[in-house]
Design a protein around this nucleic acid. Structure first.
Lengths: 126, 126
DNA sequence: TTGCAATCGCAACTAAGTTGCGTTTAAATT
DNA sequence: AATTTAAACGCAACTTAGTTGCGATTGCAA
C-alpha cells in the first residue's frame, strides 16, 4: 500500500498534523474532519500514511489509537521506536525524544518495546 | 467496590488464573467460561478482582485487555507496576520481574509508565 | 479528453465492552 | 432451620471504535 494520489483528503489529514507537534487520536481526527471527510476514509488514510512512514501510531492507556508525525521513518520501516507521553491532567499526548533501554532477558529475545509514560505536562505543572 | 461474596463464579475465574502464571485476556476468559458464566459477569468480576488487588491488568499491542495475578498488590494500591511481555510468535503474555527506570524528563513530572516488551518467548526460541 | 485504477462515501456490519433491570443467591440474622 | 436482603447474576439491548462491500467519483497518465 501507500499514498499514491495527492487528494484533498490527504491534504486535510496531513494539515491537522502540521498544526503542532502533538499526537492526535483517530477518534479525535474523525470528529475534527467529520464535515469534510467520511470516517471510513479517515481510517483508511491513517493506515496508508502509517504504511508510508509519514505517520506512526501507538496506543494510550485506554487502548485508544493515536497518530503522530514521523521524523526519521523511511517508507519501509519505522525507525523512531520511542516512548510516548500522556498527561493525566489535560490528556495531551506526544513523542518523547529519549531512549529507554530494555535490558537483556534470560531465555527470551527482545525485539521491540512499547512504552507509555504517564504524568503531568509542562503546562499542567504550572 | 471489591469482592465480598465467595460465589461460584469467583472461584471459576480465580481458578483459571491458578492454572499457571500466564496472563489471560478478558476476551479469552469470556470464551473459556462461556458455558458457565455470562460475559457481563466475567467483566464485572475482573473489575472487582482488580479493584481488590487480586488481579492487575494491562493492554497488549493490539489494545486488548489482559489480566494476571498480583503478587505484591494490596487492596488499596497496585505496587507491582512492572513491564509485561508478549511473544510475537505464540502470543503468550506474562509479567516481567525486572525494573526499567524511566529517566527524569525536563518540565514534566513522571508519575507512572506502561511498558510492553515484544519478542520471542523461551518455548518459541527453541 | 479519455480511460481506469485509486480513492471515496455510504450503509451495514463486527466485536469488545457496558448498562438497565428483573431474578437468584450468599450469608447474616432471627 | 427459616427468613431476610443486599450482593451477585443473567439476559437483552445498547454503545462505540473500527471494518467491509460496493457502487460512485476522481486524480492523473496516455
Amino acid at each position: 500500500m501507500g499514498v499514491i494520489r495527492k487528494t484533498q483528503s490527504v491534504s486535510l489529514v496531513l494539515n491537522e498534523f502540521e498544526k503542532n507537534s502533538k499526537a492526535i487520536s483517530a477518534i479525535e481526527l474523525v470528529k475534527r474532519l467529520d464535515d469534510k471527510i467520511n470516517k471510513t476514509t479517515v481510517y483508511r488514510l491513517l493506515d496508508k500514511l502509517e504504511d508510508d512512514g509519514l505517520l506512526h501510531y501507538f496506543l494510550d492507556s485506554n487502548g485508544v489509537k493515536w497518530f503522530a508525525k514521523c521524523k526519521i521513518c523511511s517508507k519501509s520501516k519505522h525507525h523512531d521506536v520511542h516512548p510516548h507521553f500522556q498527561c493525566t491532567d489535560c490528556g495531551i499526548v506526544d513523542c518523547l525524544e529519549i531512549k529507554i533501554t530494555i535490558p537483556e532477558i534470560p531465555n527470551r529475545k527482545v525485539v521491540n518495546s512499547q512504552i507509555l509514560v504517564l504524568g503531568q505536562c509542562d503546562l499542567c505543572l504550572q
